[in-house]
């Protein structure tokens, strides 16, 4: 478990920080999923985070096990 603490902290605490601007931007209507360009932007930003979560998760798993 000690090898996973940093990973969990990164994606839980980092994930909370990452989510704050999404909530504000949607609440203030500065982005909208109805706008095709905003939609692309939202998914691209999410994809970056998910990609890093997967890569670093698989990497840790392969090293530890």
């Amino acid at each position: 478990m000690e090898y996973w603490i940093s990973y969990l902290y990164l994606f839980i605490v980092g994930g909370i920080i990452f989510t704050i601007p999404f909530i504000i931007a949607f609440k203030k209507k500065s982005i909208s999923l109805k706008n095709p360009y905003d939609r692309w932007l939202v998914f691209a930003v999410l994809a970056v985070m998910i990609l890093y979560a997967v890569i670093q998760g698989v990497w840790t798993y392969l090293v530890v096990y």
Binding site: L10, G14, I17, F18, T19, I20, P21, F22, I24, A25, S30, I31, L41, V45, V48, M49, Y52, Q56
Partner: peptide, 14 residues
């Protein structure tokens, strides 16, 4: 080099 994603939405949406 791999943790810049944390701040990405602040930069992109604001």
């Amino acid at each position: 080099y791999l943790n810049d994603w944390i701040i990405l939405p602040f930069f992109v949406f604001g």
